[in-house]
């Protein structure tokens, strides 16, 4: 899951597939992607993992790193 997200973000959002994106690297506060891209991440998560993360949860505090995104997805999966 994390690798799929990583590859989506580096290829589609950062547009640099070779970018060595770390698990805890800040994406938005690190200036790698903009806030508009969060909506793209949300749609990708829904299409790829079948998990809908509601709009109020799509914030910088909740979704700034790969690990945070994975945690958000896992949390909703277990809530089932």
């Amino acid at each position: 899951m994390k690798e799929q997200l990583r590859s989506f973000i580096t290829s589609q959002l950062i547009r640099d597939p070779g970018y060595p994106l770390g698990d805890d690297e800040p994406l938005i506060t690190g200036g790698l992607i903009d806030s508009f891209s969060l909506v793209q991440v949300q749609l990708f998560i829904e299409e790829t993992f079948g998990v809908f993360i509601e709009d109020p949860a799509m914030t910088v505090q909740n979704m700034d790193t790969l690990n945070m995104m994975v945690a958000a997805i896992e949390a909703r999966k277990t809530q089932g």
Partner: peptide
């Protein structure tokens, strides 16, 4: 990248 976003609010 970090410097630009923190100062200009743009990626």
């Amino acid at each position: 990248r970090m410097l630009v976003v923190k100062s200009m609010d743009v990626a």
